[in-house]
Design a protein around this nucleic acid. Sequence first.
DNA 1: CAGTGGTCTAGACCACTAG
DNA 2: TAGTGGTCTAGACCACTGA
Lengths: 248, 248
Amino acid sequence: MTIDKISLNRFSTIPLHKQLSNNIHDQITRGILKPGEILPSVIEMKSLTGVSSVVIRQAYEYLRRAGLVVTQQGKGTFVAESKQSFEFIQKLGSSFEEAKAKREKVTTTVIELKEVFEFNTNIKHKLKLSKNDHIIMITRLRSIRNIKMFFWTSYLPASICKPLLEEDFTKVSLYQVLEEKLNLKILRAERFVEVVKADFQKAEILNIPELEPLFFIESIAYTKDNLPVEYYQGWYDTNYTKFYFEIK
Amino acid sequence: MTIDKISLNRFSTIPLHKQLSNNIHDQITRGILKPGEILPSVIEMKSLTGVSSVVIRQAYEYLRRAGLVVTQQGKGTFVAESKQSFEFIQKLGSSFEEAKAKREKVTTTVIELKEVFEFNTNIKHKLKLSKNDHIIMITRLRSIRNIKMFFWTSYLPASICKPLLEEDFTKVSLYQVLEEKLNLKILRAERFVEVVKADFQKAEILNIPELEPLFFIESIAYTKDNLPVEYYQGWYDTNYTKFYFEIK
DNA sequence: CAGTGGTCTAGACCACTAG
DNA sequence: TAGTGGTCTAGACCACTGA
């Protein structure tokens, strides 16, 4: 146990759980507690500080949310490993190519690839389709070193994109197929970036806690004559993703 | 009280606090509970459900973090107003002009404007300055309808930017002054977008809870001959901000 | 098996809000 | 002053981990 003495002030206006989390926060950022090290168990901490277990849990919960510690049931609570080891920097704005993450192996999983007959009018509107048109839907997940970075769903008009159903998108890119096999060259795209909180399903897919922030990206890609050929929605783990772009 | 009956299953593997928050979550998204409406107080909810107050607090805490409810001490917990009423859409990538938020009045506050003598080597490095160079530092806060949207700090080399100390940046833009008074035209900029969690100070400034996600933007702006003239760091409330840009 | 975290209870006291 | 949320306690039981 390398943790420093913790002194709490019962007469302070600062709640005990906050005093405790601040204290541990300091010890982590100062390097007194090092990545991978185990924190005192709730019971140990109880005897170290004299406060009840609920308060200790509250402090640990705060540190978890701040990303400073990681808890494993039955094992303990540990100082988080710093994940500065790699970032996934995506280039926006100048090309459709994503910058490779420092020579790491990037893998793509196809979660779903299908034609749908009826669908959300919002999506049809973005693709300038009418009520009875069919849509091709592709959901993919991209990982690096087994860490799930982001997943996204592309929607394309079935009328001109049906051959996509035969492709293996673990190996080829969508834009490559569109250009080489369907003669649809993407000339322009509009994109929106915002932040949303992970609901249960998205948290499952990316293997993160519920309510963690995600980048939410929407894009509409156009070919010649301003014809929209792809609308996508993507969700990115904000712990690893950073966007880069250049202006003018 | 318009809340529907809440039934919890004591034998389920799903924790009671989760069952409760899921139930209320549903009632809010289905419109049974409407924005502005008050939720049962902890004591009322205790008699409605039979669970202890800690569990109810836990459920309410989850709903707060999800942005579905707002709690005011001494008053109660209320369904959050949907803030779709306005968004602040910033245009990236094609110009330095920010898109005006749907005709709302935008105000700028200058938090700090000063010359600093010694400073962070990281910032000097980005501005290609040497150890003894001075820096001009400007921190501004931008609000719409009294809602704090974002704040940012610009760093500029004092050697060429000293006259900035005399300007009133509540009324004029930095780039305007750089171009018109100092003959420094910005030709190019590099920008990074990531997400960080608000620490105590940033949460104070933007009037949001600690650990809420923020857009963190870094930018280096260059004039001719690739000379960096401004480095800035900005923090944006993700509840109201959305970035837009166009490609190719 | 012992040690860990996760869930839950019943009840106490305090701080804030509003009539 | 009554009602609200915020803090805290002591103790119980369960689920998971690893020796």
